[in-house]
């Protein structure tokens, strides 16, 4: 069974689902890195907050007696995007903005500090225990069969993939085609010059954080739906993986973040499927190291030619 094509497809589907989550979080890292040049270490916690807001929204809707799944999903999606975006905004406004002209390490330490703070904040408010949610979207259809081994594509996975593709398309358009995207790219190149040319730098950076937070909150919702259980600690590992994905794809590049997320998800799922679950993270990091040795700026990153 291990050697069959069906098994491979099954693992690949899992990998792509996981990759979608990593990709959504990775975009936030890459956008923020591009514009302010800092590793927003607390971004993983934003993802975790997104998952918590989602579960609270689901429970609230259940309490109100709303059981029609499509509407519930839509409402939860909107709620988690809005409320998590506020966290993204506040994070930038109160923790990072005062440090914008400071050494980069100061910003990194602040980000790590915020990460620790937010983790414990949620733990204090919501308790340390696992929060399981019963299945929201069930069922699926069979795509392959090999003897007793059935490969199914669940409706949930279809929903996740569609949602991810739509969001990524929307955000690619926003970054590529709108005035906001243009202002973001201007700030990336030269913040002072952009400011002189009338770009509202503060607002642009704020909106970048908000965009990152929105995508991370969706990742949180997807994580909750897919795995059905969350705790206050999920942000750490997911954040690190997503950051790895962003670096793998070439930090600063949005398509790179998606590609990196997909790759990390696939590597993990396939490694777990064929080798050992325990060492899946080692595999992911090893691939990162290998890629960086040969392409020091990631797969889709612009190689930095040394200017002397």
């Amino acid at each position: 069974m291990l050697g069959t094509f069906e098994y491979f497809v099954d693992q690949a589907i899992n990998g792509i689902t996981l990759g979608a989550i990593y990709g959504l979080i990775a975009i936030g890292y890459t956008l923020v890195y591009g514009i302010v040049g800092m590793i927003n270490f607390a971004h993983g916690e934003i993802f975790m907050i997104g998952a918590f807001v989602s579960i609270i929204a689901f429970l609230t809707l259940g309490f109100l007696g709303l059981t029609w799944v499509p509407l519930a999903l839509l409402l939860v999606l909107v709620a988690t995007m809005l409320l998590t975006a506020v966290y993204g905004w506040a994070l930038e406004r109160f923790a990072y903005r005062p440090l914008r002209r400071s050494p980069r390490l100061a910003a990194l330490i602040t980000a790590i500090g915020m990460s620790i703070f937010l983790q414990n904040y949620v733990q204090l408010l919501q308790g340390a225990r696992n929060k399981p949610l019963q299945q929201v979207i069930g069922g699926g259809f069979e795509i392959m069969r090999e003897g007793d081994y059935v490969v199914t594509l669940s409706y949930l996975q279809i929903f996740i993939l569609l949602l991810t593709v739509v969001l990524m398309a929307v955000f690619t358009l926003v970054i590529g085609r709108t005035a906001l995207g243009r202002e973001q790219r201007a700030c990336e190149q030269d913040r002072d010059m952009a400011s002189l040319l009338g770009v509202n730098v503060d607002r642009t950076i704020s909106l970048t954080f908000v965009m990152g937070a929105v995508l991370a909150s969706v990742a949180g919702l997807v994580f909750l739906l897919n795995y059905g259980v969350i705790d206050f600690y999920i942000g750490f590992l997911a954040g690190i993986k997503a950051f790895t994905a962003a670096v793998l794809g070439g930090i600063g590049s949005v398509p790179g973040a998606m590609l990196g997320g997909l790759l990390i998800g696939l590597i993990e799922a396939l490694w777990s499927g064929y080798f050992t679950v325990e060492y899946k993270d080692v595999a992911a990091f090893s691939i990162l190291v290998l890629v960086l040795i040969f392409r020091p700026t990631g797969l889709l990153g612009t190689p930095d030619v040394e200017k002397v």
Binding site: A57, L83, Y121, Q126
Partner: peptide, 11 residues
């Protein structure tokens, strides 16, 4: 916005 979900509701 910050408090509505995480502070206002405890699971």
């Amino acid at each position: 916005g910050l408090s509505l979900a995480l502070i206002g509701a405890r699971i």
